[in-house]
């Protein structure tokens, strides 16, 4: 179900992306940092869904506020001639890996459970 939602969303997004016109180069760096924030939100959403503590308000507000803060940081960094956006990228990517770890463990757990069940079934068969 989750996989279907993501795949459909991605296909729709690519189609929309090809229709919309390209943006000026100066804006593109803000969009790039926004993309990293959105990617973080997606991973966070999937992880919280697995942990069964998904909250719509937290998810949506996190998506927008994170992206806006990252863009503002980039803008400030450009004015101060300091690459502050690197800090935002480090935080986002770090969280992405954390969330990825949660997702990975969950599915590994399911896999190992299935294997154990199979083994048990086989054992029972041989015992009989």
């Amino acid at each position: 179900m989750m996989g279907i939602a993501i795949v459909v969303g991605c296909i729709l997004g690519v189609l929309i992306g090809f229709i919309t016109p390209t943006i000026p180069y100066t804006v593109s760096q803000y969009l790039a940092i926004g993309i990293v924030a959105a990617l973080d939100s997606v991973f966070g959403g999937i992880a919280s869904n697995i942990k069964k503590n998904f909250d719509m308000k937290v998810f949506i507000s996190g998506f927008f506020v994170n992206a806006i803060l990252a863009i503002l940081l980039t803008y400030l960094g450009e004015k101060l001639n300091v690459d502050i956006y690197l800090a935002a990228i480090i935080v986002f990517v770090g969280r992405m890996f954390n969330n990825l770890g949660i997702i990975r463990r969950y599915y590994l757990g399911i896999l190992s459970q299935k294997k154990n069940k199979n083994k048990q079934i086989k054992k029972e068969e041989t015992d009989n």
Partner: peptide, 12 residues
């Protein structure tokens, strides 16, 4: 969010 994300990536 996936729609927005992939659309932004494609545009970028």
């Amino acid at each position: 969010v996936c729609v927005i994300l992939t659309a932004a990536i494609t545009v970028q």
